[in-house]
Amino acid sequence: MSLNECTLLGRLSNELILVCDHDLVVREANELAVQTLGEALLDHSLIELFSPTAQGKGTAFVAELQRLSPTQTTPTWELMLDVPHGNRLLIGLRGGKLPNQGWLIMGGGEPSGISNLYHEVLALNIELTTLIRKLSREQTVLNDRIQRLLEFQEQHDVHHH
């Protein structure tokens, strides 16, 4: 199976397609993969593209690939890749052993912007939690003032009587 044959599969047209050899060196890539990861990915190990947090997971993924028999397909993995402009790509990896070339790796190239959505939701959550913290702080200050006012009132009442 070649890259051309892979890209003919319409259902894969919005995914990154990488054809790698046994050491996960990228031999062929579709247009979306080149656009997303840069032309430099060709003839380089895919592992080099994993973000530091995904290095351990990437190594485990390669080990799993090497354990599989030719007929087996890998389960889906999620790995973070370093991409141009500092963004990290959420990528689902699956595939099987290719007869002559090694591995076919396919992953979502963020067609739905899911990675951005995660970060937006996380940023909103941080805003919310920051507000909750500010409210707690205000509440503490107000409680303290109310306490002092009550004490003042008590002293005043004692003097008055």
Binding site: V121, L122, N125, I126, L128, T129, T130, I132, R133, S136, R137, Q139, T140
Partner: peptide
Amino acid sequence: AITQSVMAQIYA
């Protein structure tokens, strides 16, 4: 997100 939220809730 859950842990951030929990930390905010017990911030008092």
